[in-house]
């Protein structure tokens, strides 16, 4: 299978799974923005994404996409380190025009996935997972790190309360903001790089894609950040 046996094929898998994850983030960000305007609206979206068959299929597809992206990332990195050889240069000077992010995608990815686990524990574990297990209320005592409200007893359908509780904790808010910065760096390279790998690029589109990637990623991360900060300010 050329998607695993050839170097370009493996990169195609990285590109397509990466673009899929960007699409997911776009949906997620749009959904979060609803919480700024309407608690009922947000909970309606949460209800739609509960333990229904279509939401579960969506979750599985998403998990598969993430899994493939991560496995391939480590696989490619191991191969690339081997290709680089054991002896490193004594003097290294970054060439002009090379993005910092492009050379640190794995590290950025590990930060992104690390905080994502923490995030899943806050929301997904309390909501969809509990619903799948047939429970009606969250069973985690609090939002970790102390200061947040006690969440035990909150309905698994009440996503809005989880947001309010989570982002009342300044430590969590700062952690999330760091997370968005890591995502920003990861996507500014990943977005145009994915299209380049798929062959959809040339000398003219090179700068266009980079600009589109920067604008899109910035809007995406700002959308996430606005919700986190707004709920922290509300909690004061």
């Amino acid at each position: 299978m050329w998607l695993s046996s050839s170097t370009v094929g493996r990169k195609v898998v990285m590109s397509i799974s990466g673009l899929f994850l960007i699409l997911f983030l776009t949906f997620h960000m749009s959904m979060n923005l609803v919480a700024l305007f309407s608690a009922e609206g947000y909970n309606a979206v949460c209800g739609f994404l509960g333990a229904n068959w279509y939401a579960l299929v969506g979750t599985l597809v998403l998990a598969f996409g993430m899994f493939v992206h991560i496995i391939y990332a480590f696989w490619l990195t191991i191969q690339n380190r081997r290709a680089r050889g054991n002896v490193r240069y004594a003097v290294v000077d970054k060439p002009k025009g090379v993005e910092w992010a492009s050379q640190n995608m794995l590290v950025l990815g590990i930060i992104v996935i690390g905080v994502a686990c923490f995030h899943l524990y806050h929301f997904w574990y309390n909501m969809q997972l509990q619903e799948i297990l047939g429970k009606e209320t969250a069973d985690v005592a609090a939002c970790v790190l102390g200061s947040a409200n006690d969440l035990s007893g909150v309905s698994v359908h009440d996503g809005y309360s989880f947001i309010v509780a989570t982002f009342s904790n300044p430590v969590v808010v700062v952690l999330y903001l760091i997370w968005f910065v890591a995502i920003w760096f990861h996507l500014t390279h990943g977005f145009w790089s994915a299209l380049h790998t798929l062959g959809w690029n040339n000398d003219i589109w090179f700068n266009r894609w980079k600009t589109i990637a920067n604008i899109y990623t910035t809007l995406l991360c700002l959308g996430f950040a606005v919700v986190a900060v707004a709920f922290y300010i509300k909690s004061l």
């Binding site: 170097t7 990169k11 290709a83 680089r84 970054k94 492009s102 380049h196 790998t197």
Partner: peptide, 9 residues
């Protein structure tokens, strides 16, 4: 040889 990650170096 390794896999290209489009760093542009």
């Amino acid at each position: 040889f390794g896999n290209c990650t489009n760093t542009g170096a």
